[in-house]
Design a binder for these strands. Structure first.
Lengths: 255, 255
DNA sequence: GTAGGCGTCCCGCTGACCGGTACGGTGATC
DNA sequence: GATCACCGTACCGGTCAGCGGGACGCCTAC
């Protein structure tokens, strides 16, 4: 629950509350389920959901509601993520072709990393990440490298809040995490060894702004066994640097 | 303007009107520009846009408003598109690796094709398509194959409405288009030869449901000259068929 | 039969939303 | 440096869109 809940006293608030009631793995939600998750009165949820359908943000199926294609379309127009994606695609492609392992592109949002893209082949390592999904920063390579190149106050905020355990290898000691962040800044890459999911390893490198802040990061993920993250240091770093210089040439500033 | 405009007499309608005022190539829109595009009173636009910001659907920058990362995240959760994307990625990847040309995944929405994914390398043909963007069905290979495997009434609707010319090669004669659709059903693939943009050729194949309706389609695009679409018939068709059978095994129905 | 869960609809109250209007800042033009 | 055009922001009283408790009919399970 990373965000303050939307204002339920306003139509718009109710609407986004309903929309955000959907998680990455929900296909379709019934009205009753929406009521349960949002806490809205049934009649209200029914009406607002109906309005969302007429506005083509939700689809009505015989089983319930689901997020519509119109919403997908809208989301893809978010300039930052979309232009990042377009710019990055060739680099991600290269990286995939060289490694044939799962390649991620992600940005930081609060204490989470949001995956903007995930590309992989038929034999990809089965990872819990989904495009558009979230993972905590502290337990993924991509999250750690994003955090390492974030403002100090953000870093402190994460380090001083409880670090949730996801696997036996998840780093939950702030001191250890802090040292890893230092090493990540040093090396320009971060690693993950079964910290988010058992059997998975990962290496990530940052896409940097002129001010040495991470705009996004890319990673390569593979299964323990055939995959040795150290083997890809050069390639991941090269891709990230190429992307960094390309991105800094095109302006797309922040808030 | 493919859709009836949203209801401007409701908060939600105003909100989505503002959101949809953004096109694929807009990075940031000023309040004044929003007012111009939406036709809303300035005060109203200001307030609603502000509400959208507090609800994290818009970002406020020093230059104006822009669609937020939260919206991107939400859009990526649209079940149909997202699961399609996840399912398709390995196939698209394969296809790219074999051809090293731009690969598209798209669905039909009304008279347009909406691109769900676009992957390409550094040397990709410069095409007007964007992920999340739209193109008319009648002037793209992917659009034609989608139309060919759509309900007859949809086909008739497109054929009987004016076919806009985009290049000297765009097919604007309904009869010719209809014949091509027939051929497309016959062959299981559709072609495009500089019909949407000069210098571009394209070949597409459908992802079919059990009922022989197109759920989506994939295409390979390349520049006139080095690229001969006929050379890829087998590969594109194979990828599409593989994807079809995989998709029909996993249920994710329509309305 | 009955009980619980579901989606839908009704309808009178009310406060969220509306937008005309006004104000301060900023850049171009003369 | 005066004028003007255009911008973003803020105010505020009227009113109607939105609200949600409640009732209803339909299922499936027990």
């Amino acid at each position: 629950m990373p965000h303050e809940p939307a204002d339920l006293d306003t139509v718009l608030g109710k609407a986004v509350t309903i929309l955000r009631a959907f998680t990455v793995d929900d296909q379709v939600l019934s009205l009753a389920e929406l009521v349960r998750r949002t806490g809205l009165p049934k009649a209200t949820a029914h009406r607002v959901a109906g309005d969302l359908v007429t506005n083509r943000l939700l689809d009505r199926t015989n089983l319930g509601y689901r997020l519509s294609g119109g919403l997908f379309e809208l989301g893809m127009r978010a300039s930052v993520e979309r232009s990042l994606l377009e710019l990055a695609m060739p680099f991600l492609q290269d990286l995939y072709e060289r490694t044939h392992e799962t390649v991620h592109l992600g940005v930081r949002e609060g204490h989470d990393v949001v995956y903007v893209a995930k590309i992989g082949g038929h034999r990809q390592a089965k990872s819990p990440s989904r495009p558009g999904g979230r993972m905590p920063v502290h337990c993924t390579a991509i999250g750690k490298i994003l955090l390492a190149f974030s403002d100090p106050e953000v870093q402190q905020e994460v380090l001083s809040s409880p670090l949730q355990r996801r696997t036996p290898h998840t780093i939950v000691a702030p001191g250890l995490l802090e040292r890893q962040l230092g090493a990540a800044v040093e090396n320009g890459v971060a690693f993950e060894r079964e910290e988010s999911a058992p059997g998975l390893q990962c290496i990530a490198a940052p896409i940097l702004t002129d001010g040495d802040r991470a705009l996004a990061a890319i990673s390569v993920t593979g299964p323990v066994g055939r995959f040795r993250p150290e083997a890809y240091v050069t390639q991941v770093r090269a891709a990230a640097q190429g992307l960094s210089s390309l991105a800094s040439r095109r302006r797309s500033l922040s808030s």
